[in-house]
């Protein structure tokens, strides 16, 4: 059976909103696994860190696997301390910077979507070091994913199936820059945009979204039409990335398409009711520019 996962919240939501969000996920969302933690900017963590144990406990009581995600970029002592503390808990960790491997000492881990796993050689190294689940990077086509999955038949492969795609990470905070501020005195302006700040081309066409030091696609990845092919290729887990949308409804929709109780075409139509006017993208999966949308069989 394929599993649905809820990826780490990429945006800076206020603590009460986070608590409410995960309470509803625990009670209502048909996902098997939830990733918690701060991936983008370590400055945000103190705002909600104290809530994480309770959130994790509630999710576990609801029967969901909990994985703690780690930052995309580890540089400062604060970030090193963060991952050291996480690695010492013995909880399952998702690594997004290979620095974590130096602390895990063979402990089982999930390799996150921000780790460059482009080929079988890299996959082999990660499996040897203790990876039990490997996320494929955003850029990979379905053929590349199938090649990797074939190499990892005993393990798990996860693909990013819904949400704005992370495309780049920096040390520079673009949210602060957009508000004429510096990162060191950012006033947490990234919290003003619950789904990221939309960036358009000079002719007005939307292109990207920024989220602090992270740059995302403006369009939502929407892999519904491709789920069956990805399952056949050996993908075991499908990740939904949290947005300021009805994520319970969206998870229910993906579950229905995976279970075959809703066809992909209807699924896309219903998904669009949640996401419009933000467009869908799926180009990478089809070997094209990531920004493209290939309608596929379901139209």
């Amino acid at each position: 059976m394929s599993c649905l996962t809820l990826g780490p919240l990429q945006f800076h939501w206020p603590a009460p909103r986070r608590r409410d969000f995960y309470a509803r996920i625990a009670d209502e969302a048909p996902v098997e696994c939830v990733y918690l933690g701060e991936v983008v900017c370590s400055k945000r963590l103190p705002w909600f860190e104290k809530d994480l144990p309770k959130i994790a406990e509630r999710l576990r009581r609801a029967g969901k696997q909990v994985v703690f995600s780690t930052p995309a970029l580890i540089i400062t002592d604060r970030e090193v301390a963060m991952i050291r503390a996480l690695c010492e808990t013995g909880d399952l960790i998702e690594i997004n910077d290979l620095a974590c491997l130096q602390l895990l000492n063979g402990q089982a881990f999930v390799s996150g979507p921000l780790v460059n796993v482009f080929n079988e050689g890299t996959l082999d190294v990660l499996l040897r070091l203790g990876a039990i689940r490997v996320n494929t990077p955003m850029e990979l086509s379905i053929d590349a994913i199938a090649t990797l999955a074939a190499q990892n038949q005993a393990g798990e492969i996860e693909v990013f199936a819904f949400g704005r795609q992370p495309l780049a990470i920096s040390q520079r905070c673009y949210h602060a820059r957009a508000h004429d501020l510096h990162k060191d005195n950012c006033q947490f302006v990234c919290g003003q945009d619950a789904d990221g700040l939309a960036i358009a081309q000079l002719d007005g066409r939307p292109l990207l979204a920024i989220n602090g030091t992270q740059t995302l696609s403006h369009g939502h990845v929407a892999l519904l039409d491709e789920l069956a092919d990805l399952q056949a290729a050996g993908v075991t887990h499908f990740r939904l990335s949290p947005h300021a949308l009805d994520m319970v409804e969206i998870a229910t929709l993906y579950r229905a398409v995976l279970d075959g109780t809703c066809d992909a075409e209807e699924g896309l139509t219903r998904l669009r009711e949640h996401t419009a006017p933000v467009p869908f993208v799926n180009g990478y999966l089809h070997g094209r520019a990531g920004v493209d949308w290939q309608p596929g069989r379901a139209g």
Binding site: A72, N116, M138, E139, Q165, T215, Y284, G287, A289, G290
Partner: peptide, 21 residues
């Protein structure tokens, strides 16, 4: 480059050709 190198997909997002690969 302003992005962390080796981990920037902006160009492939626009062109389909990857700086990484």
């Amino acid at each position: 480059g302003t992005m962390v190198e080796g981990r920037c997909f902006l160009s492939s997002y626009m062109t389909g050709r990857s700086p990484s690969s």
